Amino acid sequence: MASSVLEATRAAHEDLERLDRLVVRELQRDPANARDRLFQSHRVHHMLDLVISTSDKLVEIYEDKDGARKDEISTHLTAPVQSDIFPKYYERLKEIRDYHRRNHSARFISETDDYEELLKEEPAIEFTGEEAFGRYLDLHELYNEFINSKFGSLMEYSAYVGTFAQTEKISHSLKATRQYKEYLEHILEYLTSFMYRTEPLQDIDKIFTKLQSEFEEQWANGEVPGWENKGTGKKSESQESAVDLDYYNTVEELVELGPEKLKEALTARALKGGGTVQQRAKRLFLLKF
Rank of each mutant, 00 (worst) to 15 (best):
L142K: 05
L142G: 01
N144L: 09
E145G: 10
E145Y: 11
F146I: 11
F146T: 08
I147H: 01
N148L: 12
F151T: 10
F151L: 11
G152V: 05
G152A: 06
S153W: 15
S153A: 15
S153R: 14
M155T: 10
E156K: 03
Y157D: 12
S158G: 05
Y160T: 14
V161Y: 09
F164T: 00
T167H: 00
E168Q: 12
K169R: 14
I170W: 08
S171H: 06
S173Y: 13
L174D: 12
L174V: 07
L174S: 08
K175D: 01
A176G: 06
T177C: 06
T177D: 04
T177P: 01
T177E: 09
R178K: 14
Y180Q: 00
Y180H: 03
K181R: 07
K181Q: 14
E182T: 10
Y183T: 06
L184T: 08
E185D: 10
E189S: 13
T192G: 09
T192C: 12
S193E: 11
F194N: 04
Y196D: 02
Y196M: 07
R197M: 01
T198H: 03
T198F: 05
E199K: 11
E199R: 07
L201M: 07
D203H: 00
I207K: 04
I207C: 01
F208R: 04
F208P: 08
Q212N: 12
S213V: 15
S213Q: 15
E216L: 15
E217G: 08
E217M: 12
W219I: 14
A220Y: 15
G222N: 14
P225K: 04
W227A: 08
W227M: 14
N229T: 07
K230C: 09
K230T: 11
G233Y: 00
G233L: 00
K234H: 14
K235W: 08
K235N: 15
E237C: 11
E237I: 11
S238K: 09
S238I: 12
E240H: 01
A242S: 14
V243H: 03
V243D: 06
D244G: 10
E252G: 00
E253A: 03
L254V: 13
V255D: 07
V255G: 00
V255Y: 00
E256Q: 08
L257E: 06
L257W: 02
E260W: 06
L262P: 04
K263P: 02
A265K: 01
L266Q: 01
L266T: 00
T267S: 12
A268G: 14
R269C: 07
R269K: 10
A270F: 14
L271E: 14
K272D: 15
G273T: 00
G274H: 04
G275N: 02
T276V: 01
V277Y: 03
V277T: 15
Q279T: 06
R280D: 03
K282C: 09
R283T: 04
L284G: 04
L284T: 01
L284S: 04
F285K: 05
F285W: 07
